[in-house]
């Protein structure tokens, strides 16, 4: 699948099927029913999260099926969520870590992908082999030696330890490589004739033309690292550096009991940024996932 398929408009479906578009045949009612039941399954956790975040302790224990709280306890629950753990700090850490990771990944991957796609050099084959290998290796596989090394260097509990292993994204290189290969060589030749250096070509010609790939990759990267628990869990024990998922674990540990109201409030706060971003930029998200998915 090439990116052009994604960018070009979806081919128009034949407007008319055998049954008129607006009539409700039995088949169509069954289809809609299945889709609606499915939607309820996928949305139920969110509905109960919102509902429970507004219930007091006693109400949670008595009537968990009623969706609208009898006594609104949103303020208490959210207050608890904000005071027990520094929610602002968690979200800020999430933004800092994801932001740094993304910047490094893009800055490292784009020149490399450009060199591999459009320049010829001896190490290209070796690079390709390493990238194919790298695509196989998740952080879970490299975590042990990295942890030992970071421990020796005393950089555990720091942004460095959270960011460093992800500064290289082989997937990013791979994605950009595919995308750059599709860019016409003449574009680059013209830029060189216009007197641009290789860096100039990348900054002023390649990146502006590769913008769909960059956004797609950004979405992929941020979703992956915002949600990652494994690596932060290993290198961070100090709450000051906790990312959102880790912070939620700390919060759960601190609550210990069944204070689901506060827990749901905290859950809501931590889930909100990415979900809101998704709802606002749905089309980009879906395109991004499709592109990264089909290239990968």
């Amino acid at each position: 699948m090439t990116s052009t398929t994604l960018n070009s408009a979806v081919p128009a479906k034949p407007v008319k099927r055998r049954s008129a578009a607006n009539s409700f045949t039995t088949g169509r009612i069954i289809r809609l029913a299945i889709l609606i039941i499915g939607a309820i399954f996928f949305l139920a956790p969110y509905i109960f999260m919102l509902s429970t975040a507004g219930k007091g302790q006693s109400e949670i224990f008595t009537s968990s099926l009623s969706l609208i709280p009898q006594h609104f306890a949103y303020i208490e629950n959210f207050a608890k969520a904000f005071t027990r753990v520094s929610m602002g700090g968690l979200l800020l850490n999430g933004v800092i870590v994801c932001g740094l990771i993304l910047v490094f990944q893009v800055v490292v991957a784009i020149p490399c992908a450009y060199a591999m796609a459009k320049l010829s050099f001896g190490a290209a084959r070796l690079m390709m082999a390493l990238i194919m290998l790298g695509l196989l290796v998740p952080i879970h596989a490299t975590a042990l030696p990295l942890y030992v090394a970071f421990d020796k260097l005393s950089v555990l509990n720091s942004y460095v330890s959270l960011v460093a292993p992800f500064t290289i994204s082989v997937f990013g290189i791979f994605l950009f490589l595919q995308f750059f290969r599709a860019l016409p060589n003449d574009l680059i030749h013209a830029a060189r004739l216009d007197g641009m250096s290789e860096i100039g070509v990348i900054v002023r010609v390649i990146v502006p033309n590769a913008w769909p790939a960059v956004t797609a990759f950004a979405i992929f990267s941020v979703v992956a690292h915002w949600n990652d628990l494994y690596w932060p869990l290993i290198v961070v024990t100090n709450q000051a550096y906790a990312t959102p998922p880790l912070g939620l674990l700390f919060f759960r540990a601190a609550e210990a009991g069944d204070d689901y109201g506060a827990l749901m409030a905290a859950t809501f706060i931590i889930t909100l940024p990415l979900v809101a971003a998704f709802l606002l930029a749905q089309k980009r998200f879906v395109e991004g996932i499709t592109m990264t998915g089909l290239k990968g």
Partner: peptide
């Protein structure tokens, strides 16, 4: 599409709690 995709964009640790 949005309803089914929402879990992908959600923090799994948080939704696991739910």
């Amino acid at each position: 599409r949005t309803a089914y995709f929402l879990p992908v964009a959600s923090l799994l640790v948080a939704m696991a709690t739910v």
